[in-house]
Structure formats: structure tokens, C-alpha cells
């Protein structure tokens, strides 16, 4: 009996690690921009985030948005993605997951209550690093699967330099 031909190796979605990193960074930046808008608008209409994220992330983000609504908070300024580095690329038959570390900066961001008073903690870090997992089924078709904080840093400029 002839043996089955070897399965064709899946064509990699990204030609290089650099390309995967760029795609993941762009995806996270797009997600962050939407989150910033929701924060600046007092947590209203969080459904804007839903198409970009997994159920797990959506659950967390919805809680955040609801708290902004319930406590009458608005954000001034925006959290900025300042640097991303690649951890690894995981390719499966159905998708490609790109794991990155992203350094986010809160410099210049304030959160105000309904009285216009800042409710920001005095020792809030100005920068922190999160690990994110973005899955791609095509270079432009992605979902933020999960994220988690890794560490606080003094600044993104100093991080990994």
C-alpha cells in the first residue's frame, strides 16, 4: 500500500519575524486607539471594542468600560504604545498567533470624576509592559486574544534599550 504523501506545509502568513511584529504592533495600536476613545468618552459604547477582541478580553474590557460609566469617569489624554518587541510566532493550520511585549506610556493621562477631580493614584507608573497575543487568519484579519501585564518600567525609552 502506498504511503500517504506528506502533508503540504502551510504557507507562513508572515514572511519574517519583523513582518509578524509589525502586524501585531499595528493590531494592538488599533485596539488601543479604540480603548482610548472609549475611555475619553466616559466608557460609553464599549461595543466598539468587541469586533477586535476575544471573549476573554471583551469580558475584562467591558468591566472597565462599565466602571467608567458607573463612576462617571473620563480620561484626558491617551495611553500610548511606544514600543513592541516580538516574543514568538506560533503558526497553526488555522491561524498564526503573534506574541509580543508592548510598552505603554501613561504620561500626560489623567482620569477625572464627575466633579472634574483627578482620581489617579499618586504612585501610578508612567510606563508598563504588557504581553499580548494577537491571532491572525490573514494579515488584515486579526483578534486580540489575550493580554496581561508583565512589569512596570521607568520609561519605555529605557526599556529594552
Amino acid at each position: 500500500m502506498p504511503s500517504a504523501p506528506p502533508a503540504a506545509e502551510a504557507e507562513p502568513l508572515f514572511a519574517s519575524d519583523e513582518e509578524a511584529l509589525a502586524a501585531a504592533e499595528a493590531a494592538y495600536a488599533e485596539y488601543l486607539a479604540v480603548v482610548n476613545t472609549v475611555l475619553q468618552e466616559g466608557g460609553t459604547d464599549p461595543e466598539r471594542i468587541r469586533p477586535l477582541v476575544s471573549n476573554e478580553v471583551w469580558t475584562d474590557d467591558l468591566q472597565g468600560a462599565e466602571r467608567w460609566q458607573q463612576e462617571g469617569l473620563i480620561s484626558i489624554g491617551e495611553t500610548r504604545l511606544e514600543k513592541s518587541v516580538l516574543q514568538q510566532v506560533i503558526s497553526t493550520e488555522s491561524s498564526t498567533e503573534v506574541v509580543t511585549y508592548n510598552c505603554l506610556s501613561n504620561t500626560g493621562v489623567d482620569v477625572l470624576n464627575e466633579a472634574g477631580e483627578s482620581v489617579v493614584s499618586a504612585d501610578r507608573p508612567t510606563a508598563y509592559v504588557i504581553e499580548s497575543v494577537v491571532s491572525f487568519t490573514a494579515p488584515e484579519d486579526w483578534t486580540l486574544e489575550e493580554y496581561s501585564e508583565v512589569e512596570e518600567v521607568e520609561s519605555c525609552a529605557a526599556w529594552q534599550s
Binding site: L32, V35, N36, L39, D60, D61, Q63, G64, A65, R67, W68, S75, T79, L104, N106, V109, V111, V119, V120, S121, D123, R124, P125, Y128, I130, Y147, S148, E149, V150, E151, E152
Partner: peptide, 14 residues
């Protein structure tokens, strides 16, 4: 690491 982990929490930092 701080308990806060997402953009929401980290803008306040609890």
C-alpha cells in the same frame, strides 16, 4: 507586579 493589568486599570492604577 501591580494587580492592574489593562489600560483601564493602569490609567488609574489601583
Amino acid at each position: 507586579v501591580p494587580a492592574s493589568a489593562n489600560v483601564w486599570e493602569n490609567q488609574l492604577d489601583s
